[in-house]
Amino acid sequence: MNEIIEHIKKRFPVYEIGEGPNGVILMSVEASRLVPMLTSLKTNHGYSILVILSTVDWLEDCKFQLTYIVNNPEEKRDLGIRVFIQREDAEMESIHTLWEHAATFQREIKEMFGINFPGSPGVDDQFLLEGWDNKPPMRRDFDTKKYAEETFFPRPGRETNDPAAYMKQKLYPDE
């Protein structure tokens, strides 16, 4: 394992290399170097499976994290590669040329987070949300609760009391 990490380190400017609690090695790389790195992993090092392409919204840092987890079925190892991109007008290179089904992930991410993957087949097609006209819903600044409250009406007759506030009102209202 270390061998390949050394190898990657030599060839790509990776940083934040660390082992996750399940023994998964995770590292970050500049967005521009991702595709060459994945290509090398896939073709030269047996990381032939794209396990997941996931997005994390770090709203407070104005960043999106894209995590590409690839798997080497021979060695039974996973490698996670993180890429941080700007949240504003987010865009990332597509990897459907490496793994065709990445297009599905990318299509979903486009819809849910609003990250564009130019050239990814069907990336603009709706995936789950037919007729959605709001913010991409998985972005953290989309408030599901607020949306639900504005869009739907609550069942009448629901009201609750906070025990401490209620006790104050009952037992010592003006203290």
């Binding site: 009201e159 609750t160 009391n161 906070d162 209620y166």
Partner: peptide, 24 residues
């Protein structure tokens, strides 16, 4: 699903808010 509502006959006192859970 739970609301805390006042219940008749249950007094609010030290150690008891007088509220009881109502389930929807």
């Amino acid at each position: 699903a739970i609301d805390l509502v006042p219940v008749e006959g249950i007094e609010t006192k030290d150690g008891d808010s007088g509220l009881r859970p109502r389930v929807d």
